Amino acid sequence: MIRAFTVLIFGLTAGFMFDYINIPAGWLLGALLFGILYGLSRSDVTYDGVPFKLALTLVGANIGILMERELFGVLGTYFVPLFISLLLTFAGSFCLGWLLFKRAPMLDKRTALFCCIPGGASEIISVSGDYGADSRIVAAFHTARITFFVLLIPLIAGVWSPGDTFELPEESSIFTVEHFVIFVLVIAAASFLNSRWKIPAGALLYAILLGFFLGEFVFDIEEVPSYIGGIGQALIGVMVGVRFDRKTFLRLKQVGFISARIIFLFLVLGFLLAYVFHVLSGASYVVSLLSIVPAGAAEMSATAFALGLAPTLVASLQILRVIAIFLSLPFIIKMIEKSD
């Protein structure tokens, strides 16, 4: 317990330092890099379960408080681009899974295809064993994919995004009693709802909706101190980073160099999907990238918030993407079974 807490403190410190020297999404990247280094060196700390869910609710609450009512009317305009992007995501992922199966003799077909289902990593990992896949390899592959994406995408988004898109709360904003109350209420209520009714990205979704409701109709809150969002991003960063430990690295090494190639091709697929979504929806390419790329709903939402790039829109589209992929999982499994 003490070691886990100490790792979090050092991760937060690294995030603060990266943010202080103006690295894009510095809170997230600094903590992520520290988490990776610690995970590779020690492999004795994990934050799966309740700690990670609490970090999700903190980020979700922050996004929800800043959400505006107009977003719900805008979301409908993105339905067709999102649907087309999802179809292309399924097609691309199936092709990458088949390529992984053909090029990695040690992997059976189901394990290879589960490695390449790009949505709701924790949910995919948890059910992969029930369908006959090697959950250890699936977990290693998804951990590496998300870690690589979370490390790279914020840098790319930060460099490409124009300066006038940054609309983060003012640094001078004070953390008030109202802030404390709303965050406690949202985190507690979202955690309870997620424990009773589990859905993909549930903790994040519940927190966003509750944060919006309380911030819009109960409390009069226009902004939140930027360091609160930074802390949430850093917590997610360090918790994701420590997952990439020595066991993960060794399992990927067993699969061979093809695993690195597939992860890189996933990145290429994400850029292509973002371009398609950008053309069809009219959203900026960077916002499209954060909304569509299969890199984790929480992680991309935190990145969007850190960069001031339509975080509520990104979070909404990422959650819809994850839920759609998870609901489609039974049909994907049937396709896998038919191909056996």
Rank of each mutant, 00 (worst) to 15 (best):
6 T>D: 11
239 M>E: 03
60 G>S: 04
115 C>M: 03
168 L>D: 10
145 R>W: 00
199 I>M: 11
180 F>D: 08
105 P>E: 08
199 I>A: 05
74 V>M: 15
255 V>Q: 05
333 I>N: 00
186 V>Y: 01
154 P>K: 03
172 S>R: 14
277 F>A: 00
203 A>S: 12
4 A>F: 07
257 F>Y: 13
197 W>L: 14
248 T>F: 03
257 F>G: 13
249 F>R: 10
303 T>L: 07
256 G>F: 06
264 F>I: 11
253 K>I: 11
244 F>P: 01
19 D>I: 10
252 L>G: 06
260 A>E: 11
156 I>T: 09
338 K>Q: 13
231 I>A: 06
151 L>I: 13
5 F>M: 10
209 L>N: 00
298 A>I: 15
252 L>V: 05
207 A>I: 10
50 V>S: 10
133 A>N: 02
236 I>D: 03
219 F>N: 05
269 L>S: 06
290 L>I: 04
329 L>F: 09
145 R>Q: 01
312 T>L: 14
329 L>I: 09
282 G>C: 07
306 A>E: 03
277 F>V: 06
219 F>T: 02
130 D>K: 15
285 Y>D: 08
316 S>Q: 03
44 D>E: 09
43 S>V: 12
239 M>R: 02
56 L>V: 10
125 I>E: 08
116 C>F: 09
334 K>I: 12
263 I>H: 04
107 L>R: 03
188 A>L: 15
275 Y>L: 14
201 A>M: 11
36 I>P: 03
11 G>H: 00
252 L>S: 04
137 I>T: 12
57 T>R: 04
63 I>S: 00
14 A>S: 13
23 I>P: 05
32 L>I: 07
283 A>T: 14
120 G>P: 04
65 I>N: 06
45 V>N: 08
161 S>I: 14
246 R>L: 13
125 I>S: 07
308 G>T: 09
129 G>T: 07
301 S>G: 11
161 S>L: 14
33 L>F: 14
239 M>G: 01
79 F>D: 05
271 F>M: 13
91 A>H: 05
187 I>G: 02
185 L>N: 08
162 P>T: 10
165 T>S: 15
110 R>A: 15
247 K>P: 11
19 D>G: 12
217 F>V: 10
251 R>C: 10
14 A>L: 12
227 Y>N: 08
48 D>M: 13
99 L>K: 10
157 A>K: 03
20 Y>R: 13
102 K>H: 08
191 S>Y: 15
34 F>R: 02
130 D>C: 14
287 V>P: 08
170 E>T: 13
83 F>Y: 13
152 L>E: 06
200 P>K: 06
169 P>L: 06
87 L>H: 00
233 Q>C: 12
309 L>C: 02
250 L>S: 12
